[in-house]
């Protein structure tokens, strides 16, 4: 019976804490959204190369692959289809 009462207390404390932490995470998320929207409002778009021969989504995929492989240093200036 003693264990049961202790387990019941732990249930209250445990569920309460989990709810509090996740509510804090939610509120923190909202706060971060506000802060980021205010101080870093523009998202850096990866360079997209519009060409007549290569569709935009493929051009963006190539551009991102080059970005990853070169550690952000390389840039795609032109894509040609032969």
């Amino acid at each position: 019976m003693e264990n049961f009462i202790y387990a019941l207390e732990l249930m209250g404390i445990g569920m309460g804490t989990v709810f509090v932490v996740l509510i804090l995470v939610i509120e923190l998320g909202k706060l971060l959204i506000l802060i980021v929207n205010k101080f870093a409002p523009t998202e850096e778009k990866t360079q997209t190369i519009a060409t007549a021969t290569v569709p935009a989504n493929i051009a963006q995929a190539i551009s991102q692959a080059v970005n990853v492989i070169t550690g952000g240093k390389g840039k795609v200036e032109k894509i040609e289809k032969k």
């Binding site: 932490v21 804090l24 995470v25 923190l28 998320g29 971060l32 959204i33 802060i35 980021v36 929207n37 870093a40 409002p41 523009t42 998202e43 850096e44």
Partner: peptide, 19 residues
């Protein structure tokens, strides 16, 4: 409204860990 999801996603794990 999400104006910069990339920055938000970088800040989020740091903030959650701290909390």
């Amino acid at each position: 409204e999400f104006k910069n999801m990339r920055v938000l996603k970088i800040v989020f794990p740091i903030a959650v860990t701290t909390i």
